[in-house]
Amino acid sequence: MATTTLTAPTEHACGPLLAAGHTACTGCGEALAAKLVLGAAGSNIIVTSATGCLEVFTTRFPQSSWEVPFIHSLFENSAAVASGIEAALKALGRQNEAKVIAQGGDGGTADIGLQALSGMLERGHDILYVCYDNEAYMNTGVQRSGLTPFDCMTTTSPYGEYSWGNKHNKKDMPGIAAAHGIPYVATASVAFPKDIENKVKKALTITGPKYLQIHSPCPLGWRSNPQLTIKVAKLAVETGLYPIFEIENGKVTKVRKVKTPKTPVEEYLKIQGRFAHLFKSAEAKEEIQKIQEIADRNIEKYGLA
């Protein structure tokens, strides 16, 4: 049987592994996150991606932005396809030649792809799963997902007379992943690129299933200024609404502390159009208070103060 090389061409090894010319919106947090993940992982990887923005803007057929082997399958089975690749590499005795990275958006991870991901985590495949969390189904026009935050306005959770937006809390996806008893679970944010690099590098040295969730602002869906992508991401972390932590073998081992005195959640909410309805009436103050309580609970739960 003829063997083909699994690695990307060496001339690309020093350059960005996600080529320019992709069609992500201006100021896209997900494009930035994917670029940082690939940069940290290096060229000896095989990546899969669930359907979603990432897949659509990087693979406008017949073109591709990927400078590494890339497979797109369906919305729900990024983790299952990656499991197959990992099993095939093992069967061929070539598991040391390339690492496998599965990717998905928040919908493709926490809703549609959850059972495939759970299977991958349960079977113990040596794969890093990266979830780019932009907090709604952005590709199809901003519909709410399991990772959409409380009181957020999306096209399927509109603000109106009887609604303050999304009435459900954000699903604790890192907690669900950690409950599988896997060796490494972490969250990160595009505002802290060095942290992403460290976490990807660390994860790839660990054998077994790993889960990394990266908060990636979407200027289109969040109705924020593209220029402020990093600022928005930073405020989510500083207010405590997006806790950054590492869970190793079920124990929280590292967190990013928030500044004291703590930043009020209004700072984060007011620069995004998806929360604009919370600043229109006096009754909305109560809703902002509820969001502040979510942030306070996070700070207490993970010891961020």
Partner: peptide, 16 residues
């Protein structure tokens, strides 16, 4: 349906 690596460089997105 295989696409060649890095071919998205053909899109000159600077026009946006």
């Amino acid at each position: 349906a295989i696409a060649k690596a890095g071919t998205s460089k053909a899109n000159q997105t600077g026009s946006w």
